[in-house]
């Protein structure tokens, strides 16, 4: 991560519209999102978001406080200064005529990337790594002629035992809420709830 960026890791309710609320809150406070990824966690009622914003520390503090005001945000941690593992997945389609291939294969080897698809004059390379590795990798393949790039956005996690978990207080639910969660699960499995 470049030093200007702050990396926030957050747990949010897995409800429709939460992504929209989080991103518009950041926009509304005049901050720019440089990377964002979302996915369900082991608890299907909770999503995890990793958001990189292009601000300094004080502004990131303000963003965290404002984000906490969203009722669906359960937990946030600014992990910029923590020891972390961060990864981004990139798919990159490059022009690769016969002559270029061996050189490309070397780069792929160095970055422990994979060839995901090959055609006569192009290939799709799948690579994952920390953001700066991804940047370097793209720099190196650029001369071959990049046709298309898709990046997943960074996901990150702190090293060691500690981590972003729901505490007991967050898991406590009233019986009514438990009923509701069960009903929601049923609805989901019946495929009634679409679009979230």
């Amino acid at each position: 991560m470049s030093t200007r960026h702050r990396l926030l890791s957050m747990l949010v309710e897995n409800h429709p519209g939460v992504l929209n609320k989080v991103s518009s809150m950041i926009r509304r406070r005049g901050m720019n999102i440089t990377s964002l990824s979302v996915g369900e966690t082991d608890d299907e009622s909770v999503s995890r978001m990793t958001v990189a914003i292009d601000v300094g520390r004080a502004q990131a503090d303000q963003a965290v406080k404002q984000l906490y005001k969203l009722i669906e945000v359960i937990k946030i941690s600014d992990i910029t200064e923590d020891p972390i593992i961060d990864r981004e997945l990139v798919l990159c389609k490059v022009t690769a005529g016969r002559g270029d291939r061996s050189e490309l294969l070397q780069i792929i080897d160095i970055f422990k990337a994979k060839i995901a698809d090959v055609a006569t004059d192009s290939m799709v390379i799948e690579m994952s790594g920390a953001e700066d590795q991804v940047e370097t990798f793209l720099e190196l393949v650029r001369p071959f002629g990049i046709k298309e790039v898709a990046r997943s956005g960074t996901v990150a996690m702190t090293r060691g035992r500690e981590g972003l978990r729901l505490s007991a207080k967050h898991q406590a639910r009233t019986p009514a809420q438990q009923d509701l969660a069960a009903a929601e699960r049923q609805r989901r499995s019946a495929g009634v709830l679409v679009g979230d």
């Binding site: 309710e13 669906e72 945000v73 359960i74 729901l166 967050h170 009514a176 809420q177």
Partner: peptide, 12 residues
């Protein structure tokens, strides 16, 4: 009627 106090894990 959901009796008892409202408890929201993400709002305290």
């Amino acid at each position: 009627w959901p009796a008892g106090p409202v408890s929201l894990r993400s709002y305290n």
